[in-house]
């Protein structure tokens, strides 16, 4: 073969290899391609359960478990436990892992009561926290439920009826649906039953609104992924896609 051709070929191969190495060193390229392959791998489950999707599921669980450990150490235990205990010499922090590791006795039949001891601590703390937050959280809800039922200078009859009267009727009928102390028999009970039925109708409207929002949420997730595949991944080597204004 012609020596010049050899030199040219070697130069071309070296250029391609240099470009490839530089590209491979750029994490962005890896991120794009790994993300695209992972996304398409998960989407294969839409056809049917298959080894590819199962493989990616296991990868996801592994990454998730690993990241949880990293985040717990890096953002919590290192700064809030290890540094105070070792660098500030606050020796009493040694009791934190002792108490924390009692949870692991849940796996032992004989010693599981120790795990319940620590769970009791957390359940008690949780209950106490709820007692603290009960009034600040729910009393404004009670106050806001007493709405004016007569028009004033700012609010006319139409707004009062469409808003405040409707609010009171819906609230009371929905509450009556959950009131089980009085059976739906006798005159009072039958009236309660009618109110409960109306409350159920209003709740169905609320659930319809929730369904509408649920559809919006789920579709948004898919649109976000398609946008990544089209604009970020395919758009990285098909310029027409990158400039579609997605």
């Amino acid at each position: 073969m012609n020596p010049q051709l050899w030199i040219l070929s070697a130069g071309a191969i070296a250029t391609v290899l240099r470009g490839l190495t530089a590209a491979l060193r750029d994490p962005q390229l890896w991120i794009l391609w790994a993300g695209a392959i992972a996304t398409l791998g998960v989407y294969t489950i839409l056809y049917r359960e298959n080894p590819v999707s199962r493989f990616f599921e296991h990868i996801f669980v592994g990454l998730s478990a690993g990241y949880l450990l990293v985040a717990t150490w890096a953002f919590n235990l290192e700064g809030r436990w290890w540094d105070p205990m070792i660098h500030e010499r606050r020796w009493y922090w040694i009791f934190a892992p002792v108490v924390g590791f009692l949870f692991y006795f849940i796996y032992s039949r004989r010693l599981s009561w120790l795990a319940r001891l620590v769970m009791g601590l957390f359940f008690g703390a949780g209950a106490g926290t709820f007692f603290r937050e009960f009034f600040p959280l729910y009393s404004p809800q009670l106050y806001a439920s007493f709405k004016p039922l007569r028009p004033d200078a700012q609010v006319g009859w139409a707004a009062v009826i469409l808003h405040n009267w409707l609010f009171v009727i819906v609230l009371l009928t929905v509450l009556s649906y959950f009131f089980f102390a009085l059976p739906h028999e006798g005159r009072a009970g039958r009236n309660l039953g009618r109110a409960a039925l109306l409350g159920r109708w209003f709740m169905m409207i609320a659930f319809g609104a929730m369904f509408g929002n649920t559809v919006m949420a789920r579709i948004s997730l898919f649109i976000g992924r398609m946008r990544f595949l089209l604009k970020d991944w395919l758009g990285s080597f098909i310029p027409w896609l990158a400039h579609r204004g997605m």
């Binding site: 890896w30 391609w33 996304t39 998960v42 990616f56 996801f60």
Partner: peptide, 16 residues
Amino acid sequence: NGLFAPLQTATFSLLA
């Protein structure tokens, strides 16, 4: 950013 986040987003996007 290449595996963990896309896998989670893709899994939940199946709900659509």
